[in-house]
Design a protein around this nucleic acid. Structure first.
Lengths: 229, 229
DNA sequence: CGCTGCGTTGAGCTTCTTCAACGATCGTGG
DNA sequence: CCACGATCGTTGAAGAAGCTCAACGCAGCG
């Protein structure tokens, strides 16, 4: 029974999603029945700005970027979401067109939930509604921090903030491992790879001379609350 | 009975707030009892980044800006809210510190609702919870549009978008009236008054020569979904 | 009348982008 | 196994956009 197998693996996915794990077994069954698993290869477009918001994705595996494009083709990454995060949930909530693009940064799996399922979940399950609100709130702070970075900090400062974030996430105090290709980091920080490269180069050159770390001005690490990205 | 008078006027305010007008009379009474009216003169600080989010404001009258400050003192306005809009609702929802500053652009009145009132309202009133979510969703799109403007558009483009918005809001197709001092518009568009002035000057100079409106490049009006500001 | 707030204008400079070339790495197919 | 192309990152030179600083005009208002 291939159907059964597919079903139960979807259910297993549902159970592992933090946002959904508190649901009753019955609700999880309903959701699993409603939702459809999707696969994306690296580079695949998940959705495009202007698409109808008739549902949303929950990332099971992999990473997906949400981004805007300028008329000239420049890209600004808004978010990079990994397992457990939602994509396109605002458009689905409001039934409006998607306000941004999304594409897979690596091979990824998602669960696609139709809008009706989201609305039902919110209507019937106050606890879920609260968690959903909390997600929206987190998104808001993340975007506000991005605005702050873009408008009030220069590139070296943004990069330093990002490095500190990586460091704190990885724990190996000191040795930092890039989590994205530099080009993507640039697009996340609102700049271009060349500028990232030059900034890093300038730092290591300074450090190898006699400077203490990246620059000596005291105050150029952002004041942001650390919710971005 | 001054108490009574104050009470009933607060109730009148509550009744006029779109977000709250659908509540039952009883709920409105409760809210009016919980909430306290506040007055701000032009320039007064409503709250400061880092303040505890122990409640939020609803604007009754006037306009209030929400903004971030850089270490160097540069200001980026995130929103300008008028009557009916909420301020600091995310921090109040989550009980976290306020992530931005707020100050009155003109003499203003607000209703301050303690966090407990907000939580109770959300918990007891599914309809309100939905409306609240919708507000968060609107905020999200507005911020995403701001990010897009800051990162993907140049100043002339942002200014043009803003002018078009003003024009569409005012209806008097053609004659546009500034809704803010130029300095504030600059801080909203992520630039400085001088640059605004120069951009406008360049346009009127071009137009008076023989150009057609602000520039002749086809595509520099933002693609934003128009939710910003 | 002079002051203060707001807007404008000019000159110089900083930051960042653009464009181009080049080196390294890696996977693929011959 | 090696040559090849593709992708990614680095570097340089030149240019554009916008910021800083300073001066000035102009209105409203004490």
């Amino acid at each position: 029974m291939p159907e059964r197998i597919k079903d139960s693996s979807t259910r297993a996915d549902v159970r592992r999603i933090p946002l959904l794990e508190k649901l009753s077994g019955e609700e999880q069954d309903d959701l699993a029945a409603l939702s459809s698993p999707r696969r994306f290869s690296k580079g695949d477009v998940v959705f495009t700005e202007g698409d109808p918001g008739d549902g949303f994705h929950i990332v099971i595996e992999g990473r997906i970027k949400v981004y805007k494009l300028s008329v000239q083709g420049k890209e600004q990454i808004l978010h990079v979401w990994g397992p457990g995060e939602m994509l396109g949930e605002v458009a689905a909530l409001q039934g409006i067109r998607l306000p941004a693009h999304a594409a897979a940064l690596e091979a990824s799996r998602t669960l696609f939930l139709p809008r009706a399922g989201l609305l039902a979940l919110i209507a019937k399950n106050p606890d879920f509604a609260l968690r959903f609100m909390a997600v929206l709130a987190r998104r808001l702070r993340s975007l506000a921090d991005l605005v702050e970075a873009l408008s009030l900090q220069e590139v070296p400062s943004r990069l330093a903030t990002y490095l500190l974030l990586l460091d704190s996430r990885q724990g190996n105090r000191g040795r930092i491992e890039w989590d994205l290709p530099k080009a993507d980091i640039a697009r996340l920080l609102g700049t271009i790879p060349e500028t990232i490269s030059r900034t890093l180069g300038r730092w290591t050159r300074k450090r190898s001379q006699r400077g203490t770390g990246p620059g000596r001005c005291g105050s150029w690490i952002g004041t942001g609350s650390g919710n971005w990205p």
